[in-house]
């Protein structure tokens, strides 16, 4: 198990998270000593890069904001360049508990993509209203597409195995919501085995959560749009490893 963690890169996309990123990086190191953490500073205007670097993470700084999708693609490319097998995506706002990384990576034994699901029993993370409906619809459609029951398709807490890393290094979508919804469709279509592991969510350490009713409705619309286009696009395949 320790062996698998050695070959795992923990990627943390961060946009203006100077208030929490340092603490999260230190937490990762304390629960997984010797882990490799890559913080991708997605065009922050605050001290995110300096704070993360001081905490001991490798920090890649993007010259301008690319969104979570762009930041993650950078992470996948870095993983390939440096010979990491697995990539774990972890939010830098402290919502994801780094203690669950171990279980996510363990689940990669039987899967190519493991999603840390927030509503699968553990923890008390709840959403209501349009956002909840959107998540239910997405879960139903994507479960069909993936051929396995998924309850939390917009979770950004996920682990990718070698096959998924190779796929995502070239195919990771950079549009809004592409990094969660479309990425799942791409993986399922390319024949990746997808599974989920229940994880607990914590309240944010800093920053503001987006729970406006208007924002929630916009989220529903954009999520459906992203899903429809993801399903309508031609399928991609995993390129053979060049190692």
């Amino acid at each position: 198990m320790q062996h698998a963690l050695d070959r795992t890169l923990i990627v943390m996309p961060a946009l203006n998270e100077a208030g929490s990123v340092g603490e999260v990086v230190r937490e990762v190191f304390s629960s997984l000593p010797g882990a490799t953490v890559l913080v991708v500073d997605d065009g922050s205007t605050d001290a995110t890069t300096a704070v993360a670097r001081a905490a001991g993470a490798i920090v890649a700084t993007l010259p301008f904001n690319l969104g979570v999708g762009g930041a993650m693609r950078l992470g996948f490319r870095y993983a390939i360049d440096r010979g990491f097998d697995n990539v774990v995506q972890l939010d830098s706002d402290g919502q994801h508990d780094p203690a669950s990384i171990r279980r996510l990576v363990e689940a990669l034994d039987g899967a190519d993509l493991v999603i840390g699901a927030r509503f699968a029993g553990e923890g008390d993370y709840r959403v209501r209203g349009p956002r909840q409906w959107a998540m239910k619809v997405l879960a139903a459609v994507l479960s069909r597409s993936a051929g396995t029951p998924l309850t939390d398709t917009t979770s950004g807490y996920r682990a990718s195995g070698p096959r998924a890393v190779r796929l995502f290094a070239t195919q990771y979508p950079a549009e809004y919501l592409g990094d969660t919804i479309e990425a799942l469709v791409i993986a399922a279509r390319a024949g990746c085995v997808i599974t989920q592991v229940p994880v607990a969510m914590r309240p944010r350490q800093a920053g503001v959560p987006s729970h406006h009713p208007f924002r929630a409705a916009a989220f529903l619309a954009r999520a459906c749009l992203a899903l429809v286009f993801a399903l309508a696009r031609p399928a991609s395949s995993i390129q053979a490893g060049s190692k």
Binding site: A60, L62, L66, L74, R77, Y78, D81, A174
Partner: peptide, 12 residues
Amino acid sequence: RVLAEQNALQEL
């Protein structure tokens, strides 16, 4: 986007 990614990797 690709250039930005490559730039960040080169910087590293």
